[in-house]
Structures are given as C-alpha cells and as structure tokens.
Design a protein around this nucleic acid. Sequence first.
DNA 1: AACATATGTTAGCCGTATTAACATAGACCC
DNA 2: GGGTCTATGTTAATACGGCTAACATATGTT
Lengths: 223, 223
Amino acid sequence: MSEQPSTAASSQPKARRAGGYHHGDLRSALLDAARQLIEDRGPNEFTMKDASQMAGVSVAAPYRHFSDREGLLAALTDEEFRIRATELETIRDSLPLGSIDAIIAMGQSYVSRAVERPGLFHLIFGSERPDPAGGPHHLETSNGDRCFGALVGAVMAFVEAHSCPKDDVMGLVGQLWSIVHGAASLQIHHNFQRMLPEIDTQALIHDAAHNLLTGYLAGQNRS
Amino acid sequence: MSEQPSTAASSQPKARRAGGYHHGDLRSALLDAARQLIEDRGPNEFTMKDASQMAGVSVAAPYRHFSDREGLLAALTDEEFRIRATELETIRDSLPLGSIDAIIAMGQSYVSRAVERPGLFHLIFGSERPDPAGGPHHLETSNGDRCFGALVGAVMAFVEAHSCPKDDVMGLVGQLWSIVHGAASLQIHHNFQRMLPEIDTQALIHDAAHNLLTGYLAGQNRS
DNA sequence: AACATATGTTAGCCGTATTAACATAGACCC
DNA sequence: GGGTCTATGTTAATACGGCTAACATATGTT
C-alpha cells in the first residue's frame, strides 16, 4: 500500500475530511496535487498556490507539512524514485538473469516512464544548481540508489554470463545509463521530434543497447 | 567578430557609454550579463533585475530590447547554439572525414561544453514545457540545425566510408546523440559523481562511441 | 529649431513564496 | 465531561520578481 501514490483518503492515517477544519491527510493530498500539476505543466510552472487550492486549503497550510516548496518537491521526487525503483526491480527479476533482454527492457522502461510523464522526469533529474555542495541531492535518496542498483545488477549479471572481467561493469553502466537518459531527455524536450521526426525511441534503445553490448563483447573477445 | 559573445563596447554599433542617458549597446550588455548569471546559478535563478543591475540600467530597460524574459533567454540560446555549431563544424573539418575519431571528438566537445558551463547547457536544452505546440522551439533555430547537421555529416561520412546503407544513418545519429546528451546531463546533475565517482566522462564517450559503432559494423557485416 | 524615433527612468500592479499571529480540532489527563 | 497540549488550519502582511504605463531624454532628420 505504499507503492502507489497516496490517494489522500486511504488507509492507516486518520482521513476524516468533509467540512472539517482539519483536512485529514493534507500531506498526501498536496503530493497528489503537485504530481498532477507537474505532470501537466512541468516543475517550473508548479505553484504552491495551485497545489493548496487543489487540496482545498489555504496557501499557508502546506508549510505545516513541508519546510518550503523545495521540500515538497523533494518528497515527491523520492516517491517517484520509489515507484521507478520497484518497476526496474520487477523487470530485472522477471527476465533471464544476465540476458541482454533484461537490460534492454529496463532501459525501455526508463524511457517510457519519462515520455509518459515528462514533467516528473524533469522533476527528479532536472535540478539545475551548478553547485553540488549544499544539501542532499535527489539521487542521493535511497530510492535513487535502488534504481541505480537495479541497473548495476543487470549489467553485472550480463558480464558474468559472458565471462567478462568485472572491472568493466561500471563503465558499461555509465554508457548504458547515458543512452537511456539521453534518449529520454531528447525525446521529452522534443529534440528528436524536430530533428529526427521518424525516430522510434523504444527501437532506438533496443538498437543502441544491442550495438553497444555487441561491440563491447567483440572488444573483449579480441583482446 | 560575430562568433564571440558580444562584449558590449565593441565594433560597429554606436557604443558611447560613460554617464550618458543612453547605454550604447544595452542588448549585448544584457546578453553578457545573462550569460554570466546563468553560468553561475542556472537559468531558473536568473532574474531580469540582476541582469539589469549588471548592465547598469533600470529593471524596465531590458524590455526595450526583448519582449520578455523568455525573449532574452531565447536570444542567448541562439548565440550559444551558434558558438557550439561553429566548434562542431571546426572539429568535423579538422579530422579525417568518415573516421570514428571525428565522431568521438565531436561528442567529447559536446560534453566538455556542457560540463564547463552547466547553466548554459541547461538553458539551451532544458525547456520543460510538456506541450511542443506553442511557438518556436530552441533547437528550431538555424544554429541548432547547424549543430545537428554537423553530427549528421560526420556519421554520414562514417557509414559511407564503411560501405553501409544510408538508411541507418539517422538511427545511428539518434543513438550517438543520446549517448553524449545523456552523459552530459548525468554529469551536470551530479548523478555520475554520486553513483559512479570514479568515472571519466571523456573516456566514457570514447568507449561508448567505440563500442556502439563497432557493434553496429559487426551487425552490418554479419547480415 | 521642431519633430520623430529610439531608448531610458520611475512608479505601480500582479502573482507567488513565506512568515507571523491567531483559531480550532483532537487527543490526553484527571 | 471539562481543562490543556499539540497538531494543523486560517487570515493577514511582507518581500521579491516580471511586466506595463506614463513620462523623460538622447539622436538625427529636415
């Protein structure tokens, strides 16, 4: 029950609602509102005011649950990472361990999620601050780790299945991650649409992963 | 003289300055200010107020030169695309036509520029609007076309040099673009730094392009 | 010199984030 | 069952940033 976006009046929390002075589960309601607003317009256009209105409370109420706008977005980011992590883990576990298909399917899921909800992709990966110093970063959340871990596991299994040295795993992970992340970004920002209108992004992921891993194995066998 | 960021009091425009009521070349001064602010803090943190102050004018003055904040950013985006296009074309023309090295060097340039100025990369590629409909898009500018065209040219030469069918060119372009764009994005957002601290992004580009193109050629020869 | 145009300035409006001061609902205690 | 504490709302009020309107001053045209 903690996997799906909390739909306000759900389970264990006291969700009274209806005319009461207190909302019952404002925190969840705000996250739901924010999710929808960001899906529709992207994170930059998201306003606390709109989220408050959707939840049926005053503009000041959210500050009882989140330190500020950033805090709300950070909480939503973590929720979204959790959903993606679970999905990636499911895919990894439902396809043959060490197969190229598992890697490809994970990549396609990554892109699908991004394309379905561009605003949310932008939220979780789109931090703009040039300075990495201050405060915890998005991917730093444990759910971000889970996403990354799922990919690493699939690639690790792949190189082991092909008797390759494990030293290369992280390099391969970086290359594959770049492909899927880049494809997702370019698709979302309509760059493919403008420059490569015919492109099928899912096919691109398939072909790119295939080419990359084939080329990698060829390099291994030769040396 | 039109390649470098216009440094305010330069050449053909009347650049009087010094105590005068009129600035002389406010437009360029604003673009320079915006460039610096965005380099430092990213496009979201950029404010018209700060840019005006840096240029030494009132907050309303910029609106004589740009329709609004978006207009200023669009103009800066085009300038930045022009700089990158020229660089990519230079690289393409200075390395053996059809060589894999030319493709790799272009990719490395793409990433270098991004890493050096994350804010500007974010500006030119970071539009968040889910709706592609309204108005001209960033890459739509002719300078965006030039960037893309340089990459296409290099890949086209590569497949021709290897006697591959030209049908695949756009697919390859999409795959290579995804790699460099993804690597740049992940690096900029500190995702590599968190998850793959040892990674060398330039090497990643080299290896990924090499693996991808090797795998592609292998697929060609086999069929 | 008078006008027309381009380019600045000041003042002010509006929308949004955030905080301060106050209000009320529930929970807990006796 | 009433008193008190805490959590959670509400209504101002403040501050900042984009943008426009009304006014001012250069430039240069004739």
